[in-house]
């Protein structure tokens, strides 16, 4: 199977001139469809930067980053938006819209495509929330949910659009052991059902066992594969 994410000699640095701060150095990695890859490493090792480049949120200039057959190096805004739309994103904080209910938050992902009717969108969002165990919390606003429940809503939001790739940036950082593990297990289970690729950045060693492969990043260099 061909790689769904193919990164070749990616280098990235912050700042310019004398203050230039290299973050990623010659990173090369290929991830196949359906694979669950964990990226670990100490703070400041460039994990999140790597993830934002893959997700089309940050522009990189050196090397090659092929995501879903799109070259993201020196890409324009349209290409990045197209890639983002095919990726589900789970953030460190839940990042839900606090004025919307769980159901409305999840269906925000579907409103973008505008291919479904309102009823279909709400049905699919409700199904997805039921799948993450929140079938009885559809009309709760984020304030009325626990941290673990909120993170599960954001898992539902990332998966409801049936993305090919899910990127997760320390999804368990703000959760206790049990709810963190629950959220990641649900993510893994749902992703395996639909052959979704998951790239998960974490330094939470409690969840290493969900991964097919663990990649360690240190000072912008991949240590072992």
């Amino acid at each position: 199977m061909t790689a769904i994410i193919d990164v070749d000699r990616l280098s990235f640095s912050f700042g310019s001139g004398a203050l230039v701060q290299p973050v990623l150095k010659d990173v090369t990695i290929a991830i196949r469809q359906g694979e669950i890859v964990l990226i670990t490493g100490p703070s400041g090792s460039g994990k999140t930067t790597f993830l934002t480049i893959i997700g089309g949120l940050r522009q990189a200039f050196h090397g090659s980053v092929m995501v879903l057959d799109q070259q993201l190096i020196n890409s324009n805004e349209q290409v990045k938006i197209k890639v983002r739309q095919q990726i589900g994103y789970i953030f460190q904080q839940h990042n839900l819209l606090k004025s919307l209910t769980a159901l409305q938050n999840v269906s925000m992902t579907l409103e973008m495509g505008n291919t479904l009717t309102e009823q279909q969108r709400l049905e699919r969002s409700a199904q997805m929330l039921t799948a993450v165990g929140l079938g009885d919390r559809l009309h709760y606003k984020p304030d009325q949910l626990s941290a673990g429940q909120r993170q599960r809503v954001s898992v539902a939001r990332a998966l409801v659009g049936q993305p090919k790739i899910v990127l997760a940036d320390e999804p368990t950082a703000s959760l206790d052991k049990q709810s963190g593990y629950e959220a990641v297990s649900i993510l893994k289970q749902l992703a395996k059902e639909s052959q979704t690729t998951i790239l998960l950045v974490t330094h939470d060693y409690r969840i290493l066992d969900v991964a097919d492969r663990v990649v360690e990043l240190e000072d912008g260099v991949i240590k072992n594969t």
């Binding site: 949120l57 938006i81 983002r84 990726i87 994103y89 953030f91 819209l97 973008m112």
Partner: peptide
């Protein structure tokens, strides 16, 4: 800002 950035990250223009 945070909410808008989130929406942008999931593909809103």
């Amino acid at each position: 800002r945070n909410e808008f950035a989130t929406l942008k990250a999931i593909g809103y223009e």
